[in-house]
């Protein structure tokens, strides 16, 4: 099993979430995060019209755990739904997961996903 952690644009969340559901990935967690990548930051307008640059930008972080054989497909789905082609689209991180336990029944392993 692998955990897929995707940092994406907030405005792409709906599209990513729906695309994952269409591909059978229903379970996920979403967190509002702020962070910094290579994107230079965004500029707000101050009260006197002066530019105010902020370099910690709001993004959303999606986390889901999938079976090893689904990883490539899920990554493709996320990329397709989240990509705009501009700097600041985000990142995907993949990491191994040792065990999954369903609290209600105590079941372990892939079938508990």
């Amino acid at each position: 099993m692998k955990k897929i952690e995707a940092i994406v644009r907030t405005e792409r969340l709906e599209a990513v979430k729906n695309a994952l559901a269409d591909n059978g990935i229903l379970g996920l967690n979403v967190t509002n995060v702020i962070g910094r990548g290579v994107q230079k930051g965004i500029t707000y307008q101050g009260r006197g019209g002066q530019p105010v640059t902020v370099d910690m930008l709001p993004k959303v972080k999606l986390e889901t755990v999938v079976k090893d054989r689904d990883v490539d497909r899920v990554v493709d789905v996320i990329i397709k739904a989240a990509r705009t082609g501009n700097i600041g689209d985000g990142k995907i991180f993949i990491m191994p997961v040792e065990e999954v336990i369903r609290l209600r029944t105590g079941e372990r392993g892939e079938k508990s996903l």
């Binding site: 307008q45 101050g46 009260r47 006197g48 019209g49 002066q50 530019p51």
Partner: peptide
């Protein structure tokens, strides 16, 4: 209008101010 000219967008904080 001032915020539109100097800041490129019509600021809501500006309208309130």
């Amino acid at each position: 209008l001032m915020s539109l000219v100097f800041g490129n967008k019509p600021s809501v904080l500006g309208m309130a101010s």
